[in-house]
Amino acid sequence: MMKSKYKKIILLSAFMFLAMSGQGFSQDWISSITYQISFPAGDTKSFTDETSYSGFGLDFRKVVDPYTTAGFSLGWNVFNQRVNKTVELQTKNPGAITGLQDRTLNSFPIMLNVHRYFGRGHDSRFFLGLNAGGYYMLQRFSIGIRTLEDDQWQWGIAPEVGFIAPLSRSSTLIVSGKYNYAFSGESPLGGDINHQYWSIGIGFAWSQY
């Protein structure tokens, strides 16, 4: 069931990428695809304290004026950690559980965004942006022969900074960093969890402006 859900998201992403980066949109839209490395922070670091090397982002920005774009973004970041440690259980009668644990977080950010660019036309340009929307979070906690899974939508924001550097008439190098912050969520172990992580992306954008 879970797999079919995230496969739908992937197919949607692929469809959006093919549709939005087509010839008809290229004059008004900037489409980008980035490979992302992510670093867990806050509660995410407590859940999976490993750097994620599995991630990508798709971005579609409509040129509003030479310094501003507005659009939306999709992504997928996978955090995973195998750890053998003791977890304290905050139950009526206090407890603890020890064993080999596989902890996985699949985060699918789906957000609207606005970006402001600094610099001139075809030069390299820095930009600042704000993404707002949410994250479809798939969390899995396995210990022993038991697996706890949880999928939920979590609202959140992701401030962003980056730069673009023209490589040819139609393509641009894009490097950006985002701080992903989900406002609220529930841990598969119970209790609240606010997922947070840094993402650094590098890729290409297709623009005509």
């Binding site: 259980l89 009668n93 206090p94 407890g95 559980i97 064993g99 080999l100 022993g144 038991r146």
Partner: peptide
């Protein structure tokens, strides 16, 4: 690797 140790005590 599937060994799990769980403990509880009366508060």
């Amino acid at each position: 690797d599937t060994d799990v140790v769980t403990t509880f005590h009366n508060a």
